[in-house]
Design a protein around this nucleic acid. Sequence first.
DNA 1: TCGCTCATGTAACGTGTTACATGATTAA
DNA 2: TTAATCATGTAACACGTTACATGAGCGA
Lengths: 183, 183
Amino acid sequence: MDIRTLCLGALSLGDATGYDIKKLFDEAFSHFFAAGYGSIYPALEKLAEEGKVAYDRQQQEKRPDRKVFRITATGREAFITELIDTPPREKLRSEFLVLMFFAHLLPPQRLAAVLQERLDESQRELAILEELARRELPAGMKFTIHYGQAITQAAIVCIKENQARLIRDVNATVNECNPSTLR
Amino acid sequence: MDIRTLCLGALSLGDATGYDIKKLFDEAFSHFFAAGYGSIYPALEKLAEEGKVAYDRQQQEKRPDRKVFRITATGREAFITELIDTPPREKLRSEFLVLMFFAHLLPPQRLAAVLQERLDESQRELAILEELARRELPAGMKFTIHYGQAITQAAIVCIKENQARLIRDVNATVNECNPSTLR
DNA sequence: TCGCTCATGTAACGTGTTACATGATTAA
DNA sequence: TTAATCATGTAACACGTTACATGAGCGA
């Protein structure tokens, strides 16, 4: 599943400009799928070539023209087919965990700072999700928010419970690390 | 942070072949960073060009030659610098949550199957993490496993607690969805 | 006056995925 | 005999990121 498909999904909710779609990525999709203008505009162009979306050009005074996109019948069908065929995968890419994995190579104060940064960031994400959770939304959308809250909360608890001990243990075992158990 | 850096990290734990490194990605790194041979071998080649790793060629009978890589002093330094400079980001890409977001477009039985598949997959992942958690490992590595367990467990609980209601609610609101609250 | 919102896009680059190609050994 | 393990790699392609380019309106 790529950004083209997500754009189609965005348009299945109602007509929108590329700019509007970006906002959707930054809000409702933000905790499970990311995209910037540099992927969204080319995606919309390609979808238009394929006949999956169409658009009207709206002239505006003193602003650039807007291209208001809408999904076509073909596009809707393609989107639903794609949804049905997509296996429910999930992939985490965590630079934070890389840093933790190699915590023994990090200066102690950097380790502490990294843990704190991650904690702060997770708390910011949780606040955004809590804000989203207040809205009236269809069950599926609500579920994505609950799920995001659940895992973010779990991450926060895990960091809070372990950060002090981790910093202590890593300091205590400098250069005593024996990673042979991994192989 | 890219796969080159992770290969360097792998070699910081001890000498290894590309094949060995792949196993590390499939085991210890699997819940936070993915890579296949198609990225690992070119990464090692490039690191060798840059002088960050070196290798010996070991001839073997009846098997292809092995290239046993080791990290150089330059490589170790570059790795640590990169670790210190890397902000502790975390990015989830969840096709599962995309499917949930658009659950109202999925045939009911497909929705049920998707939830079950995700649950099964999460439980498999948790089992792998529990196995890893039994090993004696440095504190940082242990932390990555605890963290993985925490969020995977939270995801499992969230699915279990909500799947029945979600299926019911989505069925109840077919075509009544009003996503205007999102904009 | 500063920064945010609206609004569109391109070009270059980096990165990673997938499929392909090869093939013996060993355990079940 | 079947599948897994060991072992290396390439080539084509897909995909996405980043920086750049432009510019007015509006509220604090």
